[in-house]
């Protein structure tokens, strides 16, 4: 088997005295679409945030594309990563946020071109060509010159997706990207992700409460509880024949809502 694209090895994560992950192991293959489900506070967001380098780790190693994310290899073994290393590693990753986090003072187009221009040194014309293409992909071509506060939640989130894609990450992290949306706007966002999953060979890691969507799109579903993977497997199996009682209880509670 080839080396996994993402690999957590014995990771420990604490917030003060609260232990979130202890000896946590998890891996994702290149091109795999993995959904993470589980109760609130189980560490789903924290997992994505560690990958996006928004949260550090207290122990263990996280490998991305065969390289430690939070460490640097030296002659004396692994040492904590410096900014330069993190900057380089972040090129693998892109993230879409639950609350969009669009830049409110920038037009839709500028939201998308900002990073390609500043980080990748693209010219305005190059960056705008990318933005146009991505806006087309997310069905927002006609809104390029609008500002985030003029958009609906679903439209904001589609811009959020385009903005993350503009940096051409190989791994896309999606943290409950539809849970801040009105129910009728959820599908327009999920459709974009469906398309991405079909057309492109992204590796996607998504935290979601949309079970039907997880079931439809994922190669694998992981059920998280209290900082551990209680059960993982193909979506059909997890959703129709969960083995663990905790998974069953969680899914039952979800269905009865």
């Amino acid at each position: 088997m080839s080396q996994p694209l993402i690999e957590f090895q014995g990771v420990e994560k604490r917030f003060g005295d609260t232990v979130i992950f202890k000896d946590f192991n998890f891996s994702v293959e290149d091109g795999e679409i993995v959904s993470i489900i589980g109760p609130s506070g189980s560490g789903k967001s924290t997992l994505l945030r560690i990958l996006m380098t928004l949260e550090g780790i207290e122990g263990g190693v996280v490998n991305v594309a065969g390289e430690p994310l939070w460490h640097k290899r030296t002659a004396n073994g692994l040492v904590p990563a410096d900014n330069k290393h993190l900057h380089r590693m972040r090129h693998h990753l892109g993230m879409v946020f639950q609350h969009f986090n669009l830049f409110p003072h920038m037009s839709v187009k500028r939201n998308i071109t900002e990073a390609p221009m500043r980080v990748q040194g693209k010219t305005k014309a190059e960056a705008e060509a990318i933005a146009d293409e991505l806006l087309e992909l997310v069905g927002m071509s006609d809104k390029a010159d609008m500002y985030p506060n003029e958009l609906s939640g679903g439209q904001k989130q589609r811009v959020g997706i385009a903005r993350a894609l503009a940096m051409q990450p190989s791994i896309l992290l999606l943290d409950e990207i539809t849970s801040a949306l009105d129910p009728e706007l959820v599908d327009e966002v999920l459709d974009v992700i469906r398309n991405l999953a079909k057309k492109h060979s992204f590796t996607m890691l998504l935290v979601t409460h949309e079970m039907y969507f997880a079931r439809e799109i994922s190669d694998r579903v992981c059920f998280f509880d209290q900082g551990a993977i209680v059960e993982e497997g193909e979506p059909e199996q997890i959703f129709t024949a969960p083995k663990e009682t905790r998974t069953q209880a969680f899914l039952n509670a979800y269905m009865s809502q």
């Binding site: 996006m52 380098t53 928004l54 900057h87 972040r90 090129h91 990753l93 892109g94 993230m95 946020f97 609350h99 969009f100 986090n101 669009l102 830049f103 900002e114 990073a115 500043r118 980080v119 903005r163 993350a164 940096m167």
Partner: peptide
Amino acid sequence: GQWEASRALNLSVFD
């Protein structure tokens, strides 16, 4: 969230 989005997009601290 603005800081986090900036970091996720790999913007430098200066930018």
